Simulated scan of single mutants.
Amino acid sequence: MNDTSHHDDRIAKMTFASVYPHYLAKVEKKGRTKDELHRVIEWLTGYNEEKLQALMEAKVTFEKFFQHATLNPNAHLITGVICGYRVEEITNPLTQKARYLDKLVDELAKGRKLEKIMRVA
């Protein structure tokens, strides 16, 4: 894999609040709801809607966002390509978590069932 240190640093410094509106617009454009988006985010991070709102108001970076998250034990089951990289092969833990979230948002926007997105048996 190419050196992605500049990319990793950019993701770490980006605020969750700056990206969230893009996630919401992407899923709503495809007929999904804010509630579904929040369910997927909560599944991955453990953050409920109230905590998400507080994190956005505090303008936390992705680094802080994932530092305090309780990553779902099944997150490692998220596989596939996002932004040209296979999420399961990303070596930087923070970048991988951010790409997990990107992948889940993509799956939601593509109409995948919530049970499949949340890797429920």
Rank of each mutant, 00 (worst) to 15 (best):
R10D: 07
Y47G: 00
C83H: 08
M56T: 04
K103P: 00
M14H: 10
Q53I: 05
L24V: 11
R86K: 09
I90W: 01
T79C: 05
H68W: 05
D8N: 15
E36A: 06
S18L: 10
H76G: 06
K30A: 15
E89S: 09
N48P: 05
T79M: 07
A58Y: 03
G84I: 00
E36I: 06
P21H: 15
Y100I: 02
L24N: 10
T15S: 14
N72H: 15
K64R: 11
G31T: 12
E36T: 05
E42H: 14
K97T: 01
R10W: 12
E57M: 08
E50L: 03
L44D: 07
N92V: 05
F62K: 09
L71W: 03
N72R: 11
N74V: 01
E88G: 02
V19P: 01
L101P: 02
E88N: 12
V19I: 15
E50N: 06
R39P: 00
Y20D: 07
V40L: 09
R86H: 09
A54H: 10
F66H: 06
R32F: 11
Y20I: 07
M14Q: 14
L101S: 03
Y23Q: 06
T70S: 13
W43I: 09
M14E: 13
T79A: 14
T61G: 03
V27S: 09
Q53V: 06
R99C: 01
K103N: 05
T70Y: 06
L104S: 00
L71E: 11
R10P: 00
K64S: 09
P73Y: 06
I78K: 07
L55G: 04
